[in-house]
Amino acid sequence: MEISTVAGESSTSATQTTIRIRPPRSRLLAIWNGATPYLFLIPFLVIFLAFFFAPFVYDILQSFYILKHFGGLGLTPPKVVWNGLANYQQVLTDANFWRGFGRVLIFGIIQIPVMMGIAMILALLIDAPLLPFRRFFRLAAFVPYAVPGVVAAILWGYFYTPSLSPIVQALSAVHLPVPNFLSNSTILWSIGNISTWEYAGFNMLIFYSAMQAIPQELYEAARLDGLSEIAIARYIKIPMIRPAFMLGLLFSMIGTLQLFNEPEILHGISGAITPTYTPIIYAYNIAIIQSNFYYGGAIAAILGIITFIFSYFFVLLTQRQTGA
């Protein structure tokens, strides 16, 4: 994936952020490279094999087994036996898994557009020529990204806890009704707020950086034609940074499917977060708390496969549309 504006490769559009699926044609033709490229690649490949490929294969292999109890009374120790595809079959029909999956899906459908919308408005305002203190606003929006997810969740957790929350203090001071941020119906959006707070500035910076790379002549031409700043945003900036937008979208979608840190931390203060709340939390609880790695492994594998298929087709689709 390319988080970049490859200025040297496409002279026509400086802001073409592409995600390539195939390697670019190498321009350096080797006559005698021999073993050299492999030597450069060895450290990466060793780490890749040990911490990506091996765990992946191990996960798949384990997910074909099951821990069986014989004798019913628990007198004999349970045995690990071959289970074929039954674990997968069970995950695919597991209401808990699909509820968790549906939850992160709804979360993504609402939270991602809100966050991207805020990020886009921010980027446009900070890129617009007339407003003061733009540098300060840009820094302020980006600072939450520096806060680790766990700390952000602890911090917002305090804002949601009635006895500590300055929001609750302020609302009750003026005798307004105090919302419960931690109930069954609100907790998902309380988590959404944390994600938005953390990542809106990061996405803003992706968009803003792409806007900065738009050739100045385009604006001059547009202004000569009498386009307003809003029209320039609508017809030049937003279309021109589309690839950067798609990239931010991809990151957000992958992140949402893996939602873990924030709900796991908030579960300490909200009973609404169940052990099956998101797919990763579910897999973690099954595999570690219940020590059933075989089934937990199958959940993780299916989530990984869904994530991969999803992002692969997303990349393919954006590639086709940008004509890269």
């Binding site: 994936m1 890749f48 911490f51 990506f52 091996a54 765990p55 992946f56 191990y58 996960d59 384990q62 992958i254 992140g255 893996q258 873990f260 990763i280 897999a283 973690y284 595999a287 570690i288 790695f293 937990g296 492994g297 993780a300 989530l303 990984g304 994530t307 991969f308 992002s311 692969y312 990349v315």
Partner: peptide, 17 residues
């Protein structure tokens, strides 16, 4: 492919290995 599947999905088998 590895960039599209976050390592977090593999945290469990990494731990076991």
């Amino acid at each position: 492919g590895a960039a599209l599947v976050p390592q977090i999905t593999l945290a469990l088998p990494i731990y076991l290995l």
